[in-house]
Design a protein around this nucleic acid. Structure first.
Lengths: 173, 173
DNA sequence: GCTAAATCTCTTAGTGACTAAGATATATAT
DNA sequence: ATATATATCTTAGTCACTAAGAGATTTAGC
């Protein structure tokens, strides 16, 4: 096999492996939501709150891609479950900040322990330098996916015949 | 900062970076489904069909975590949209294989082009050897997440007081 | 200051994908 | 043959979602 062809095969393998693990990650999330007894998007919002801290309802809608109406429902359910609190912004009383209730959020966090343990085991075999490579990749990957999302959204308003000619890899098998 | 502490910080950073990119990946998928005009889980099934090839309805239910009843609906919609075909197994006529219609699937594939391009750009800066490291990580990661999912499912039937003592990292901020 | 426009969240009505339970059809075991 | 198991589909009911617009508050223009 030629040098470049070997790389192409490697890239394809990598892409598929990442797709698989990403799909399994989604499934893990679904299972967590199931076990925790909350809806999938409720859990997703908890995750965002964990990562971003205290955020407004509007920002939550933006990040999740849901309508503000749907977010009202999400926050209603989470608040009822005691997982978050609504906090009105005193400077701009239109805004509602959503904040996690730390103790209650711990209960949800428990369900991520199997994942953390599994990942710890995976990470363990890598040297610090290798981990830095992985971190660099994850960071760049995030930026890439973000850019791709924007590009895709841009594609919506572009009529098909005006779209840049996109070559698609053929299906396997 | 001590040697081990530096690693702990690195691990945490890595975990968060991966969570972020994974969340953005989910959002990309939602956007694709949106643009393609099909439901999220319909797209997920298309993805599985792409990765696994021709699979039975039951297997689809297994992999997605949906009930067989839900899968009937998914396949009905996908078939109506001309994206897949039902094919009865001639050896076991209870089984229904679901197969992608290649030409139609291409249309869906188009929406992954921005992602492929973004990823290509990210991958480009890595040497073959570095890519092999990433592949190894993705493969191991997949296995880890799979195992974690099973472990979590096992946790459901274990009453809280009998669960192994799980230590949870504290929340940031 | 006062009015109009903008911004942010919530409400309402309607839609659609999901689950649970059981029906149907086919296969396997005794 | 009969019973049990397996694979998919059907039905009824539930729940989260969207679209549209209603409050409530802030900002801009005069």
């Amino acid at each position: 096999m030629s040098r470049t062809k070997a790389r192409a095969a490697l890239l394809q393998e990598l892409e598929e492996a990442m797709r698989r693990s990403s799909a399994q990650g989604v499934l893990y999330g679904q299972t967590v939501a199931n076990v925790a007894g909350i809806a999938n998007s409720d859990l997703e919002c908890m995750d965002i709150l964990y990562l971003e801290g205290r955020v407004t309802a509007g920002r939550l809608a933006e990040v999740t891609g849901l309508t503000t109406g749907a977010i009202t429902g999400v926050v209603d359910r989470l608040e009822k479950a005691g997982l978050v609190r609504r906090e009105r912004d005193e400077n701009d009383r239109r805004k509602v900040f959503i904040a996690v209730v730390p103790e209650a959020a711990m209960k949800i966090g428990q369900f991520y322990v199997p994942m953390q343990q599994a990942m710890e085991k995976v990470f363990n075999v890598y040297s610090d330098e290798e981990l830095r490579l992985l971190l660099r990749f994850a960071t760049e990957g995030y930026k890439g996916v973000l850019a791709a999302t924007e590009a895709l959204k841009g594609l919506i308003d572009t009529p098909p015949e005006k779209r840049p000619d996109l070559k698609l890899k053929k299906l396997r098998r």
